[in-house]
Design a protein around this nucleic acid. Structure first.
Length: 426
DNA sequence: TCTGGGGTCCTAGGACCC
DNA sequence: TCTGGGGTCCTAGGACCC
């Protein structure tokens, strides 16, 4: 058996922990740039504020219902997530942190325990330790646990816990669930399935396997197997090395100048390099991209993207920034107002393995010596920024001057920034 | 009349997840 | 005026290798 523990309206719940006045009030959290709704309290959902909808289209509703609006505060949510996961680690032998607000638990050895008591105790402990309310779904596979979790959230009489312990109970639950709510079935597949008169999760579980395999491919076939109680998705106990790392932002207002975009690209590159070092990884491919808004007329749109293969895998900020500026120069077109840019690193290898890379026959640089020196430099950079804050020490090109984002309703960094805490008490 | 078999790498795009 | 950010896996086609 697997359990899925999912934090309720997670970002909203984080804001409520530090601001109890937000209880029983509609609350929303906005995406970066204060763009779209990415979390909504139950009260906000009831008003009709939809996930992913832009805030500016809902200005009147927000005002009418006196909705509390927050800019995304990811340092706060990340820290609260770590606290929830730390608590769960004390309650289950094996777990997989699936996302910032979800965690799968392996209940394989829980045969003699009463799962309902265990789940209720888990909810209580997480809430006591962190202030975050969670829902728990339990089933024979991860996909069934996901479905159970959805039921626990939708059906208030269940008290936040839903356990599908038998095949009969599972089939009954799946019969009441629309096919588009299955984990792994998105809007495109849902439309295809409805056309085939497959409307419920149970219809999908019972659909001909060869048809599913043909139209939804191997991933869809696995989902079907999982719904029928055959576990295909094991718990991933060790987090695997990321295969790509992306840093990108939309700009608060349009940016046209090459210089300004260069600053942004330098900043994104330095963030990517930092993330690589934090993971103990190096990248061999670097991609830079630059977009105009997708919401303007087609004739005025431009999307530039280009990839560079580095001579050696690298996580060095200076090396990556040099390559990124070359790429930017080749994709930048003057005369456009750019809305978004980003940097993506891929072709990722282990830092230690990469250090043993075959040397180039043509490169005059004595690589091993420079690499040692550069690694020391990056270590020092990270140590200073870790102590005094990210961005304290940076390259001159990384100035973050004109492309700032909008963040007008930001709550304090209650758990990660001393100055914010001092200000609250002042 | 008749024209193999087995690979890799790269790019692009489509689907999904949170 | 205003529309997020960061990932994964899979498929398919083209170019290339022997």
């Amino acid at each position: 058996m697997f359990a899925l523990v999912d934090c309720n309206n997670f970002y909203v719940s984080c804001e409520r922990v530090f601001n109890p006045g937000l209880q029983n009030r509609p609350v929303v959290v906005l995406s970066n740039n204060d763009g779209c709704f990415i979390a909504r309290s139950e009260e906000a959902k009831a008003i009709g504020l939809a996930m992913g909808d832009p805030a500016y289209k809902n200005r009147e509703l927000l005002r009418q219902h006196n909705v509390a609006v927050y800019s995304a505060n990811f340092p706060l949510y990340g820290d609260m997530s770590a606290r929830v996961m730390k608590t769960l680690e004390t309650l289950a032998p094996d777990l997989e942190i699936y996302s910032i607000d979800e965690c799968f638990l392996d209940l394989g050895g829980f045969g003699k325990f009463n799962l309902a008591d265990y789940a209720a105790a888990t909810r209580k402990t997480v809430h006591r330790n962190t202030g975050i309310p969670v829902s728990i779904g339990i089933g024979a596979t991860k996909t069934i646990a996901k479905a159970a979790n959805r039921m626990a959230k939708k059906n208030l009489s269940l008290g936040g816990v839903c356990i599908l312990s038998t095949a009969a109970a599972t089939r009954e639950a799946l019969g009441a669930m629309a096919v588009e709510h299955i984990w792994g079935i998105g809007s495109q597949y849902a439309a295809l399935l409805h056309k085939q008169h497959i409307h419920t999760a149970l219809d999908f579980a019972d659909a001909p396997t060869h048809w599913v395999q043909k139209h939804l491919h191997i991933t869809g076939a696995r989902v079907q197997q999982e719904l029928n109680g055959h576990s295909c998705l094991p718990l991933e106990l060790v987090r695997s090395r990321k295969q790509s790392i992306c840093t990108s932002r939309s700009f608060g207002s349009l940016v046209s100048s090459y210089e300004e975009i260069g600053y942004a690209i330098a900043h994104f590159t330095s963030t990517c390099a930092f993330k690589l070092r934090r993971e103990g990884s190096r990248a061999s491919l670097l991609t830079v991209f630059l977009y105009t808004s997708p919401f303007i007329e087609k004739e005025n749109r431009y999307r530039g993207t280009r990839t560079f293969a580095l001579p050696f895998p690298s996580n060095n900020t200076l090396e990556l920034q040099k390559a990124a500026q070359l790429l930017l120069a080749s994709i930048y077109r003057s005369g456009y107002g750019y809305k978004k840019a980003g940097v993506l690193v891929s072709g990722i290898t282990d830092e230690k393995g990469a250090a043993m890379t075959t040397l180039s026959l043509f490169d005059n640089d004595p690589l091993p010596r420079n690499q040692k020196r550069d690694m020391k430099l990056m270590e020092t950079l990270d140590a200073i920024n870790s102590r005094f804050g990210q961005g304290t020490l940076r390259t001159a090109s990384d100035t973050n001057s004109g492309w700032k984002q909008r963040q007008e309703k930001l709550s304090p960094h209650y758990t990660t920034r001393w100055n914010d805490i001092i200000e609250i008490h002042a």
